[in-house]
Design a protein around this nucleic acid. Structure first.
Lengths: 89, 89
DNA sequence: ACTTATTTGGGTAATTGGGGGT
DNA sequence: TCTGTCCCAATTACCCAAATAA
């Protein structure tokens, strides 16, 4: 079902992360952040995901381990993003 | 299965996509989204189609496990859950 | 027939996408 | 390797006034 969260524009996400909108676009292109495309081709980002990314950035452990490369995402397509946000407006 | 042909107004679709209602009208005019015209000339959109568009390409494995987040995404993971977007310009 | 909110139409500025190079 | 900036083309957002929907 629908996640039901608001969508953010690239500029909004860029402002939240204090980066250039192009950088946000690269994150989406690289698959580091989920993105929804409008029929026109522009991207929209889920606010819950962006906020989770923002909150999680203060993590510990910076082990740069190249040996750990999960090159393949399993077919376990978890459609719904974990948090069941019941924020319907 | 239930198609759910509820009709949505341009304002509803615009809110779902986080765009301007005028943009939704342009999508309909460009044939990117199906639309039904009222006798007065206003457009209505099918909820099932809108939802399919929203979830059709916004699906990415969203593991919010930043602690275990591999910074280097491996090589070309051809396991793309979604088909290559066929709407680029 | 009324009012209120939304949609329509055209035109112009701002944002976005993709590629390239620092 | 990652990010910021350049280009151009396409898409999108906001301005107006009139018509439609409920």
């Amino acid at each position: 079902m629908d996640t039901g969260d608001r969508l953010l524009t690239p500029g909004e996400v860029a402002a939240l992360f204090r980066v250039d909108p192009k950088t946000v676009t690269r994150w989406a292109a690289a698959g580091r952040i989920g993105s929804i495309r409008t029929p026109g081709g522009h991207r929209r980002f889920r606010e819950s995901e962006v906020r989770a990314l923002l909150e999680g950035e203060g993590m510990l452990d910076e082990g740069e381990d190249v040996a750990n490369r999960p090159r393949n995402v399993g077919p376990t397509a978890s459609t719904g993003p974990g948090p069941a946000n019941a924020g319907m407006y």
